[in-house]
Simulated assay, not measured.
Amino acid sequence: MTSIRRLAGGLLLAGNLHAATITVNDTGFAQSDDGVCTFAEAIDAVNNDTASGVLASECTAGGTEDTIEFDLPLPAFIDQPFMLTVSRSVVIEGPGKDLLSISGNGISRILRINNVVLSEFTVRGLTFTAGFAGDNLLGFDPSGGAVFVDATVSPVTFEDVRFENSAAGFAGGGVALVNVSSTLSALRTFRRCHFVGNTALGSSINEVSGNSGGGGGKYIGGSVDVLIEDSTFESNVTLINGVAPSADGDSQGGAIWMVSAASSATSELLVRRSTFSGNSAVGLGGGLAIGMATVTDD
Rank of each mutant, 00 (worst) to 15 (best):
V237E: 01
D225Q: 04
S101Q: 13
G202Q: 03
T275I: 09
R272V: 11
D298I: 07
T266E: 09
G213Y: 00
T127I: 08
G253L: 00
F276T: 07
G144C: 11
L55A: 05
N114Y: 07
P142L: 02
G202P: 03
S235N: 15
L11C: 04
S103D: 04
A151G: 02
L111F: 02
I228R: 05
F190I: 01
E234Q: 14
I110L: 13
E41V: 07
D298Q: 13
F140D: 13
I68K: 00
A281V: 12
A76R: 05
T294H: 12
T296I: 14
L269Q: 03
R112H: 03
A146G: 14
D71R: 15
V226E: 13
V196G: 10
V153N: 09
I205Y: 02
G197E: 07
A261E: 03
I22H: 02
R162D: 15
Q31K: 15
S89F: 02
D79W: 05
G278V: 06
S3Y: 14
V282D: 04
G139C: 02
E164L: 11
A40T: 15
R5T: 11
T129V: 14
M1L: 09
G144I: 12
T189F: 03
H194L: 15
N206A: 00
R124H: 07
I256S: 05
T21V: 08
N165M: 15
L187F: 06
A42I: 01
D150C: 04
T232Q: 05
L99M: 13
P142K: 07
V24I: 12
A176S: 08
S280G: 02
R162G: 09
V178K: 02
I228C: 11
E164W: 13
V295D: 04
T64L: 01
V123P: 11
G222V: 00
M83A: 15
V149Y: 06
M292S: 15
F190N: 06
N114V: 00
R188Q: 12
N48Y: 10
L187V: 08
R273D: 04
V153A: 14
V208C: 12
D150F: 04
A261I: 01
A167V: 10
E268K: 13
N165A: 11
D34N: 13
H18P: 03
D49C: 03
E65Q: 12
S154R: 08
S119V: 05
A14W: 06
S204Q: 03
A30C: 10
G210R: 02
F77G: 09
L11T: 06
V24C: 06
G253E: 08
T152W: 09
D44L: 05
L187T: 10
G53W: 10
D79L: 04
L269Y: 03
